[in-house]
Amino acid sequence: MATGGRRGAAAAPLLVAVAALLLGAAGHLYPGEVCPGMDIRNNLTRLHELENCSVIEGHLQILLMFKTRPEDFRDLSFPKLIMITDYLLLFRVYGLESLKDLFPNLTVIRGSRLFFNYALVIFEMVHLKELGLYNLMNITRGSVRIEKNNELCYLATIDWSRILDSVEDNYIVLNKDDNEECGDICPGTAKGKTNCPATVINGQFVERCWTHSHCQKVCPTICKSHGCTAEGLCCHSECLGNCSQPDDPTKCVACRNFYLDGRCVETCPPPYYHFQDWRCVNFSFCQDLHHKCKNSRRQGCHQYVIHNNKCIPECPSGYTMNSSNLLCTPCLGPCPKVCHLLEGEKTIDSVTSAQELRGCTVINGSLIINIRGGNNLAAELEANLGLIEEISGYLKIRRSYALVSLSFFRKLRLIRGETLEIGNYSFYALDNQNLRQLWDWSKHNLTITQGKLFFHYNPKLCLSEIHKMEEVSGTKGRQERNDIALKTNGDQASCENELLKFSYIRTSFDKI
């Protein structure tokens, strides 16, 4: 039985969820670079991206490699990797027998973001014989899940209580170790020597080791999670996991709180800001991140802002960003909400898709409305799209047979046209069989910064309504002859009103 693990408890099935942008060198404390989270699957090609990484700022997932063999891993080693800020997950990587050479110096898994409450997941690794993470000293947050690894031993010899604050939620089941077939031998045991430290858990006094050649490092209890030197002297209180010299914040392997210019500090002093819960960055760093993602459509890219001495992905609820200094300031009234469309555009074809934009005031991208039916549609669209004030790209209304009016965009005031449909149009209306009105132009103002209007096959939309939009939106004169079809717009509506004058002759039985 794995020490510190839980057996036999019912657990939810383990679901495996399925960018080499360097964020800056980590400095003297770390020998390499800070790398983003990685999802490495199918083959070993991307694994080489770990070569210079000291910190993975995010998670590391290595999974679904069915053609790899043990010899493929023999020359692979990433000794610079010290810390993973989120979680480490391995799933069905064939041929991998140990992690001792792959990650010989991995010391800390912070667990800032977890995989279903777990910071370390080893699942269905069919050839893994031992973990071998002999320098792993601290899992700051989260638990361990090690399950269905039929060859995995050296679990009962690990004292997880020396690595985690609590072992109650560890789930370590259905491994070879369960069948008591392992016969784990710690260093020196074969020669009758006791080389590794022994600890007591559940009444068992057991030597602690990761492999037959690597003991588990056990520091004096007084050192807590700070770690200790090879001689057993406690590291500085700002260290986490390990250090090369005692009581020196510049000799830590990793930091308990924050890293700044080669030393570990309790908090980031001005003019620095907390970033990702582990390091200090200056304003320029946060500003660069903001600008890199301002026009990016890459998933996970955030326009970072500053709030409460932190550089964070977005302002919290009730705050909006001051564009001059990136500071989050309290909103006066309802907060603006910028919604970034991942692929640059979004099609609204149902109430469900409209709900995804609920509360958005600025759309960074283009909207395509293609709704053919739905219950209580006008009210639903207004509830979900009615706060949109600005669209950076274009607005396209296409084959939306259920629409009679666009009044559900009740606050839309600006279409920038930074991206144009077919390279020309910022407003595009095609084949809307029941569209009769755009907006009530006596109450609604709309500016279209650039781009043209396109109207074709809107049989109940009168040309007068379209011409009014040209005047109000500032697009009059931009359109070419064929942009607004004269014969297919309003051709099934009563669009022309003329005053009919009647004269009559009164007659009676005795007068003409």
Rank of each mutant, 00 (worst) to 15 (best):
residue 161 S to Q: 07
residue 171 Y to P: 05
residue 257 N to D: 03
residue 29 L to S: 08
residue 206 V to G: 03
residue 202 N to D: 10
residue 331 C to S: 03
residue 183 G to T: 06
residue 176 K to W: 09
residue 243 C to M: 00
residue 88 L to S: 01
residue 232 G to I: 06
residue 320 T to N: 09
residue 288 D to P: 01
residue 336 P to A: 06
residue 296 S to H: 10
residue 229 T to R: 06
residue 199 T to A: 06
residue 39 D to L: 06
residue 175 N to P: 13
residue 257 N to H: 10
residue 150 N to A: 04
residue 121 V to P: 00
residue 210 W to P: 02
residue 125 M to Q: 05
residue 148 K to S: 15
residue 183 G to R: 07
residue 217 K to G: 06
residue 88 L to R: 01
residue 118 Y to L: 03
residue 151 E to L: 11
residue 125 M to K: 00
residue 143 S to P: 10
residue 71 E to P: 05
residue 114 L to W: 02
residue 311 C to Y: 00
residue 107 T to L: 05
residue 114 L to G: 01
residue 80 K to A: 08
residue 245 Q to F: 07
residue 152 L to Q: 08
residue 242 N to R: 09
residue 135 N to A: 11
residue 257 N to S: 07
residue 323 S to G: 14
residue 333 G to D: 13
residue 255 C to D: 01
residue 101 D to K: 06
residue 166 S to I: 07
residue 298 R to F: 05
residue 292 K to C: 09
residue 127 H to R: 03
residue 184 D to S: 11
residue 200 V to R: 11
residue 43 N to I: 03
residue 38 M to L: 07
residue 44 L to R: 07
residue 189 T to Y: 04
residue 311 C to L: 01
residue 162 R to Q: 14
residue 288 D to L: 13
residue 160 W to I: 02
residue 297 R to H: 08
residue 250 T to M: 10
residue 229 T to E: 06
residue 171 Y to F: 11
residue 86 D to Q: 10
residue 147 E to D: 07
residue 196 C to Y: 04
residue 215 C to W: 15
residue 44 L to N: 04
residue 309 N to F: 12
residue 39 D to M: 11
residue 204 Q to Y: 05
residue 323 S to T: 11
residue 229 T to S: 09
residue 275 F to E: 01
residue 96 L to N: 01
residue 119 A to D: 00
residue 37 G to K: 03
residue 315 C to S: 00
residue 117 N to I: 12
residue 43 N to Q: 09
residue 67 K to Q: 07
residue 172 I to L: 15
residue 119 A to V: 03
residue 36 P to E: 14
residue 107 T to E: 04
residue 71 E to W: 04
residue 151 E to S: 06
residue 67 K to A: 09
residue 33 E to I: 12
residue 290 H to F: 14
residue 320 T to L: 06
residue 105 N to H: 03
residue 292 K to L: 13
residue 105 N to Q: 08
residue 174 L to G: 10
residue 211 T to N: 10
residue 252 C to K: 01
residue 252 C to T: 02
residue 218 V to R: 12
residue 336 P to F: 03
residue 100 K to N: 13
residue 113 R to F: 07
residue 74 R to P: 01
residue 241 G to R: 07
residue 237 S to R: 11
residue 50 L to I: 09
residue 200 V to P: 09
residue 259 Y to L: 06
residue 260 L to I: 13
residue 207 E to Y: 09
residue 164 L to Y: 03
residue 73 F to K: 04
residue 223 C to A: 03
residue 76 L to C: 15
residue 263 R to M: 00
residue 241 G to S: 08
residue 327 L to N: 10
residue 269 P to C: 01
residue 334 P to K: 15
residue 280 C to D: 00
residue 244 S to H: 11
residue 166 S to F: 07
residue 178 D to G: 15
residue 298 R to V: 11
residue 293 C to G: 02
residue 212 H to P: 14
residue 72 D to N: 15
residue 134 Y to L: 07
residue 54 S to V: 14
residue 66 F to S: 07
residue 242 N to S: 12
residue 203 G to Q: 07
residue 312 I to Q: 04
residue 188 G to R: 04
residue 43 N to V: 09
residue 234 C to N: 02
residue 54 S to L: 03
residue 292 K to W: 07
residue 158 I to Q: 07
residue 287 Q to W: 15
residue 139 I to T: 02
residue 57 E to D: 15
residue 277 D to M: 13
residue 76 L to V: 05
residue 63 L to K: 03
residue 124 E to C: 03
residue 210 W to A: 06
residue 246 P to G: 12
residue 281 V to L: 02
residue 295 N to H: 12
residue 328 C to V: 01
residue 204 Q to M: 10
residue 192 G to H: 13
residue 257 N to R: 11
residue 221 T to P: 02
residue 163 I to E: 01
residue 99 L to T: 06
residue 39 D to A: 12
residue 122 I to Y: 00
residue 183 G to E: 14
residue 157 T to D: 12
residue 193 K to C: 15
residue 248 D to V: 03
residue 28 H to W: 10
residue 270 P to T: 02
residue 149 N to K: 00
residue 175 N to K: 14
residue 71 E to H: 15
residue 157 T to W: 05
residue 214 H to Q: 08
residue 195 N to V: 11
residue 160 W to D: 01
residue 100 K to G: 11
residue 164 L to K: 12
residue 188 G to M: 15
residue 75 D to H: 05
